[in-house]
Every structure is written in structure tokens, then in C-alpha cells.
Write a protein that binds this DNA or RNA. Sequence first.
DNA 1: CTGAAAGCGCTAACAT
DNA 2: ATGTTAGCGCTTTCAG
Lengths: 351, 351
Amino acid sequence: MSDKAVSGSPTLEDVARAAGVSRATVSRVINGIRNVDPAIQDLVRRAVEATGYVPNRAARSLVTRRADSIALVLSGAGDDERDLAPDEAEGDVFTDPFFGRIASGVVGFLRPRGMHPVLMLADSADARQQVVTHLRQGHTDGAVVVSTHAKDPLPERLAAARVPVVRFARPPRPMPVSYVDLAHQDGARLAADHLVARGCRHVVTIAGPLDVPASQDRLTGFRDAMARHGHPYVPTAEGNFTQDSGERAMARLLAQEPALDGVFAANDLMAAGALHVLREQGRDVPGQVAVVGFDDSSAARASRPALTTVRQPVEDMAGEMARLLLDRIAAPEGRPTSVIFDPSLVVRRSA
Amino acid sequence: MSDKAVSGSPTLEDVARAAGVSRATVSRVINGIRNVDPAIQDLVRRAVEATGYVPNRAARSLVTRRADSIALVLSGAGDDERDLAPDEAEGDVFTDPFFGRIASGVVGFLRPRGMHPVLMLADSADARQQVVTHLRQGHTDGAVVVSTHAKDPLPERLAAARVPVVRFARPPRPMPVSYVDLAHQDGARLAADHLVARGCRHVVTIAGPLDVPASQDRLTGFRDAMARHGHPYVPTAEGNFTQDSGERAMARLLAQEPALDGVFAANDLMAAGALHVLREQGRDVPGQVAVVGFDDSSAARASRPALTTVRQPVEDMAGEMARLLLDRIAAPEGRPTSVIFDPSLVVRRSA
DNA sequence: CTGAAAGCGCTAACAT
DNA sequence: ATGTTAGCGCTTTCAG
């Protein structure tokens, strides 16, 4: 391998000279354009090898007007700033077990294609503006955005700026944006079926924040399925997807329905909170009470007993987001697309 | 705000025309170069405003030969591929609670400076080569690298390629690379002092993998401090920083030292594992056994009882890595630097 | 203190 | 099928 420093990198010109052809021809070979004599192609490739040539991305971008890179943006708070210290606000987003899986899926898809995502955080009005500007300038060709809050204005703003965007999760209000999502209702049904099959008669549920479509779907799906099983009424407490809120919700439910023998929580963190409260109250899980979570996050495996949970294939979904985005960048005029993934039940100890 | 599409973005030329000056002058103003008549500066700034001009980064990079962006690379497995499915291997790295905090710190530092990190994952030989190539090409000006395994060859390779690099944690073998680290021994001492002050007489410790310098330091620091407190012998079991390994280690120690009344685990995940095993064995925490973790990760707050732990200011450390890297990029010939942070004790329920 | 002009390395018409 | 040529938008000597 050549040991040339970045500064004196060989250019197209050098390769052309070495191969005895023109820059244009080398460019064609490099970019895999047909209409080049196979013999010459070989010649060029050999010259590339010999010179240790690597294309200069800035030069290429300048003329193609494409950055050949995409942004992975985590979009936090809503319209108003929250009164957290910046550190906390950030920790909030990145600490979510989801984030790692999303990043993993996106990177996993991009890497074989020689691309890497640019990580951006949009947790304040300023930050959001910065993201929009960045994208509009073409520093990145598009964005995969994960909003942690229901009415995050960013995706709509980006779409309005004609920036290719793919969201994680269906938007709260219909808007012309591509997205990837899960069949939440089916997932909730999986949980209901499992609980009923186990013989649970007094089932309760801890819902997520109801302004989030996913929470709504999980709740609706669960209630519908329970109703079909002959349980038209399911005591419900609302949480906000944190472990603490799960604990509080569980305590309320326990007071309201002391005879409960089954719990479905809308995510694993809240399920873990429920587990703690149940143990504190001396209820054996899964002996006396069965608990089912949602997501199959690391929290599900870390809990004791380990959580039976509805798996959301987040990595695959994130990879698909990247795929949709690249498609869209290649054909900007297409209509928004959406892909819905199927959940599956992962049975562990808790139910 | 102007609604111009990316395609027709105003250029320096446009601004120059609007301001009635030359491109060069506008460029000087934009780049904050002195020697420009204040009146003209104002004129130009107004023109920038009016036209909605934003510099084209590709064009700028082409001439300055700087990308104005850095890479955040997570470097996984050692020299050999591990026999995990790609998904697992990735999940592995990104799932680590550390990752989110690192990302948060780096982004927090970069964002006010208008920069965003490019996220790269180097968990196989191929991936590492890709990272090196990417950096050598100048797509990014340098890298902040976090190695999850002891003898990750990447930092050394990058340094050899004369790419500016800052590591998280002191390298296992001395090498000319800047890094940011924690005073692990001091942290361990904090834990020891706390346990002894609480009245613990039979203290054991769960160490991290001993080929990692941080694990060594924590163990050494803990033993030394305990010795100073009159406890020359501390039963020890080695884990690998996972919760499972913490459970196994705790079980072994319990068998070896049934009368134990204090546990120091080298990270929170292992401490959480210890908590589970202690509860299973009917030991009350903190009543009969006090448990102290390390890191102050989300796991510490999620545990029940919540973990008393040695806090590692990861976000600050990550921000500092970014700062050191930018300094180094600005002055590539300087000598490697290192910054050591102080740990602190966070007292919660477990001890 | 400001302007003119020369590229940075590459792609994409347009010729041939 | 290959070569010639004209920029992409910006920074940076070098003159003035």
C-alpha cells in the first residue's frame, strides 16, 4: 500500500498519466460508467492501484452537488425549550436504549455502501434550525429522523424545505413524509393472546403517553384483543415510557385491582418498573402475576425475571429507513413510502 | 427567510455583487479575517443577510483541504473477527450505556461550533480498514475513538497514518496518542472509604476484565485503599463488565465468603447483577450487604435499590476529547496530550 | 485595505 | 469509445 500522505494524494490527472489516457476516461471507469473498452478499464484500474489513488470527495461533491452522506437526527423536545440543563436534555435522548439500536441499524446498512451517517441532535429550536440549514446547504443529502416527542416540528420543516426525509414511526398528523413503523396493534394482540393463554383472568395495562400514535395503537390493539377474549374492560394507567412512570402506574393499578394476575406494559422500561413494584408488594412474578413488556430492549434481558416481551426489530427498521432514504435521494420526485414491520413475541421468564 | 432551493443557492459572487465589492472581500469577512474596513464589513454582512447566503462546504474543503468535520468511531473486537452475527456485534457496541453518553458529550461540544460528528463503527478488520481509508482521504479531519476492547489496533493505525486521534482511556501499551481518562484508582478509593465508613467488615470486589487498564486500576486502587483501612485481603472475582458476569461473580464470592457485608463492583452493570443474586439469596441490600458500583450509568438509577456508585463524568470527558482533537487538528505537530478527570461518589440506596 | 486571477480535483457536456 | 473543455464555489497569493 502506498504511504503517501493526504497532502500529496494522487489525483485523477496522475492516474490518467500513468494509464496513458485522459482524465475523463479514468473518471468513467471509477464511476462505473459503461462505454469503456474493457482493456482500457483494466489499464486504468491497474494505474489506480499503482498510484494509490482515492477520489477527493470535496471535488466530486462540488460538481455533482451531492454530499454522498446522510444525517441521522435525533429530535427531542417539542416547540418549546424544556427547562433542563443541556446535558440532561441530551443525556435524555441518547440514553434511550432505542438510540443504540437505531444507530446500529443505520450504520449496518450504510457501511457496506461506504457511507457513514452524520449524527445530529435537535433538541431545541436553535438546534433544529441548525439542522435544517445544514441539510438545505446540501452538506448531507437527506435525513433519517427519530423524534422522541409526539409533535416534533422538524420532519415537517425538513420536508417543506424539500429535503429527503424518512421518519421512524408514523407521524401524529398525516403529512407527506416517508416512514417506517411497526404493526403495534398486532404486537399488543400477541401480548394479550399470551396472557390469556397463560390463564390470566384479571389483566391490566400500563399505556404509554397517549399523544404518541404508537401508544394509542398498542392500547387499542390490546383492548380489542382482550375484548375478543371475553374481557371487555381492561384497567389502564398511563405512563410516559420511563421506569419511574411504570412504577407509579403499577402502584395505582394494584390499588385499583388488587386481584390482578397479568400486566401488559407498553414498553420494557415501564414493565421493569412494574416488576419492581410487584416484588416490593410481595407478588411473585411469574407465579402470581405475569408481566409482558414491549420492544425487547436491553432492559428486557436485564430484568429479573427476564421479561417476556413483544419484539420490535428496531435494527431492521432503522436499516430500512436508510434504504428508503437512499432510494428517495436517487429519485426525489417519488411519492412518500412507508414500510410496516411485524412484531414477534419473545417469551422469557416473566410471563 | 429566503425560500431558495438548494440548487439555486446564492454564491459568494452574488453576495459580492449585492454588496458592490469583490468576492475576495466577502470571503475575508465571512472568515473573520481582519484588515477589512468596518464599514465594508457591515455592508457585506447585510448583503449576506439579504441574499440568504450560506457557504458551500465542498467548495471550501476543496481549497482548504480540510473537511471541518470529525469522526466518532466506536471500535469493537480485537484482531480477529468474533463469531457473532453482524447484528449482535453491532448491538453489542451501541447497546453499551456508555455509547449514548459519549455521543452526547461529543455532540454537545461540537454543536455550538457548527459541527457534527460522523458516526463510524469499526468492529471487524474490514471496517477498520474502511475507517482508516476514510480518514486518510480527508473526509474527516480526525477521530475520537472509543475502543471497547483492550488491544484494539485502530488507534495505533490511525496515528501511524498521521491522522489526528484522541482516545477514550489510556492505551494498554504506551503509544503517542492523546487521550482522556478517569482517575480510576481515586474512584475505587472513594468506594472503599465509603464501604468502610459504613462499617463493612467483610468486603469483596467484582473486578472488570484484567486486560483492560481501567479494570486493573480500579482493582488496585480498591485493594490499596482497603489495605490502608486495615483490610489487606479482599476476595476478588473477575467479570467482563456484563450483568451476567456480575451475577456469576457474585455467586462465587458468596460461596467463598458467606459472611460478606460489602461489595464493590467495577461497573454498574455487574453491580446490578450482584444485586439480583443477593436478593435471590435472601440478603437484604443495603441492610445486610452494601453494594457500590462504578460509572453512574443509567443502570445505577434503574436498579432497585438504586446504586450508590462512583461517577465517571463521561459526557464531560467526551466533550474534552472533542476539544483536544480540534486543538490537535489546528496544530498537528504538537505532542500528544492527556486529561484525567476526577471521579465522585454518588450515594443512593444500595450503600 | 481591496481587487484580480489562479487554481483546488472532479464531472459532464460536447466533440471527435 | 475516448478526449477536450468548461466550470462547480471558494480561498489565497499577488498587485495595486
